[in-house]
Design a protein around this nucleic acid. Structure first.
Lengths: 354, 354
DNA sequence: AAATGAAATTGAATCGATTCAATAATAAAA
DNA sequence: TTTTATTATTGAATCGATTCAATTTCATTT
């Protein structure tokens, strides 16, 4: 059946698979002893342990993780769940960084990572249920999602070990958050500090908490600089480059005048830069632009993009560490972790590094 | 122990987990019948099947996948393995596209995806063995790696279901490949066609097959345009932006003159663009630049990058389809699939779309 | 030398499904 | 009605580990 399953054969496979029974037989002990010995249980006599280890090594024994999981009720696997949003998260560069951070930590602890996107809307609830209850994973890192998503709510509040990447309205939930408000505040403040008075904000979807927080930070910065909030300067878009370009185009069509843009993320900022260039509007001379994320490409565009740096890799690391702490019954130092952002001054705003 | 494992509780969880026994009891049949019924086995009478389905639904039964896997020897999970290379693949944008393609297909078939990076060199062989033999996954999609990597060899030739993303020297191995030679040939030919005569090639690491093929394509193009191959115009780098910039800097230091650059990938091309700008060398007027990959950001830089498009998402899809065909004992139309590339003309080469 | 206690080991039960071989129920043919 | 097929269902075995409770071994104390 399984085509050529052992055509060449991995070292030590012999005729069939090597199980714990084989090891027990060779070592001349019971399977129980083998299990304890290989787990390093102190009950087992040092000499016996050595014996078992030798036998295991000789047979090139690799435990069947499925058998192990069934009995011990642990899979040593966690899922990284990416909710099914209109703007598919995969297309966002920062996602890679997150993944990088997560895998680094998991490797360290020999945990496995499962990537779970969710299938099309239909049966979505079922899909989540399956992740929670099919016993395939021990815990979940959940990428932030729409505030309206009921399934996320169920997931986070199910009692299943979850770390949520974003703000959650409930104290008990484990989260790793960015300080979106402060990041946005600093970005907008910087623009205001440069003398910009009509600052556009290209917002991400406002059913996402981070978009809301960034908008609030922007508003606060305006207020602190005695700039009146003008709703016509705020456009809600979807985090994509195309949306950034479209926003600028729409502003032109609506004849809105402005001297600064604070975009809700770098992709939109880059899209905006492009459109401004097409319209022959000089950046930063006529319009200053600031983004959010500090993706790798932020300093590859012309002019180099001033932006709010978020340590996505670190966030990934923290989330994984936190989840593993729970799974391994270790101390979790803090339920909510808030990582701070930092404004990176480049060319697109026309300012100087402080 | 498991902190608040059922503090809130998912719908239908009741006091404990719902197993197949519970369903059997409620439906008034044996567990065997439940199993067959839910699997849609034709042996089971229609009426009984309905009965079982109702019971399962009422109890909100979700099968324990671990139990299932143990007996049936199928996990419905595949691994995407990213070999541990110096230039960590995660940092490359095209990786995301690959992942996107893979997950799309897996979703369709309700398969799970495990991401396996490999830990630091030590124990790497062991790590691979574990993937192959711990029974956690049914098959593997293997990202291309160094030609020298012995572990990859073992993995691909183990007889375990593997799809390799790249060229393999053995007919029997399932692969999805780009036509690197042809892509490079077209890129370099285009430059030559524009009258460029001293064309630099910034190559990726030459222990990677794709780098070799691209170099060969470049050489062939030169030859076909009566341009003598000049080894001093070829520099071997590591696929990173920094490396691209460094290459240009080194050429300057060595006083090499050139009027075109064909970079082994877009990141290096973008790094080169940046360095050329710093050195006040006009692109495309003085030097034409062409990249490889067509990452999302290729048209975000200034000037927009001419490059060889590879359908990474499609490659991901094809690899997943191919692997699933094997796992589900379906027909595999072709062992080797070669997807073609296509030159995308933008601003950085100074040419016109044909 | 017997009794006691501690340490080491064993063997069976268990986890939750699938699947095999045996049996029961039903329908068709003799 | 009995026999033969055919269809449905069952119950137990099985997958490969972990883990519980019981037992054996060994060292120590009386």
């Amino acid at each position: 059946m399984s085509n050529a399953a052992s055509r060449i054969g991995v070292q030590g496979m012999g005729k069939g698979k090597v199980t714990i029974k084989d090891v027990a037989k060779v070592a001349g002990v019971s399977t129980g002893t083998v299990s304890y010995a290989l787990a390093g249980d102190p009950r087992i006599n040092e000499k016996t342990r050595k014996l078992v280890e030798e036998a295991a090594h000789k047979l090139n024994y690799i435990p069947n993780e499925v058998g192990r999981s069934l009995r011990s009720r642990k899979t040593e696997t966690i899922a990284f769940v990416i909710p099914n949003t209109s703007s598919h998260v995969f297309s966002h560069p920062y996602f890679l960084k997150l993944l990088e951070g997560i895998t680094e930590v998991l490797e360290e602890y020999s945990y496995n990572l499962q990537i779970s996107t969710t299938p099309s809307e239909k049966e979505e609830a079922k899909a989540y249920d399956k992740i929670l209850r099919s016993n395939r994973v021990d815990g979940i890192i959940l990428s932030s999602a729409s505030l309206k998503d009921r399934n996320i709510l169920r997931m986070v509040e199910s009692g299943f070990p979850v770390v949520y990447l974003g703000k959650w309205h409930h104290e008990e939930v484990l989260t790793v958050e960015r300080d979106d408000f402060r990041g946005a505040y600093e970005a907008a403040s910087h623009l205001a500090g440069l003398g910009r008075r009509r600052i556009v904000h290209i917002s991400g979807p406002l059913d996402h908490q981070e978009s809301v927080d960034r908008l609030e930070g922007y508003k606060q910065a305006l207020s602190d600089h005695q700039i009146l909030y003008d709703a016509s300067l705020v456009v809600e878009k979807d985090f994509s480059r195309e949306a950034g370009a479209a926003a600028v185009e729409e502003l032109r069509a609506a004849n809105v005048r402005y001297d600064g843009i604070f975009a809700g993320n770098d992709l939109m900022a880059i899209g905006a830069l492009k459109q401004l260039k097409r319209m022959n509007i000089a950046v930063p001379e006529e319009v200053s632009v600031v983004g959010f994320d500090d993706i790798d490409m932020a300093d590859a565009v012309t002019p180099e993009l001033t932006t709010v740096h978020q340590p996505m890799r670190e966030i990934g690391r923290m989330a994984a560490e936190k989840l593993l702490a729970v799974l391994q019954d270790r101390e979790v130092p803090e339920k909510r972790s808030i990582v701070s952002t930092r404004l990176i001054i480049r060319e697109s705003c026309g300012g100087q590094p402080q």
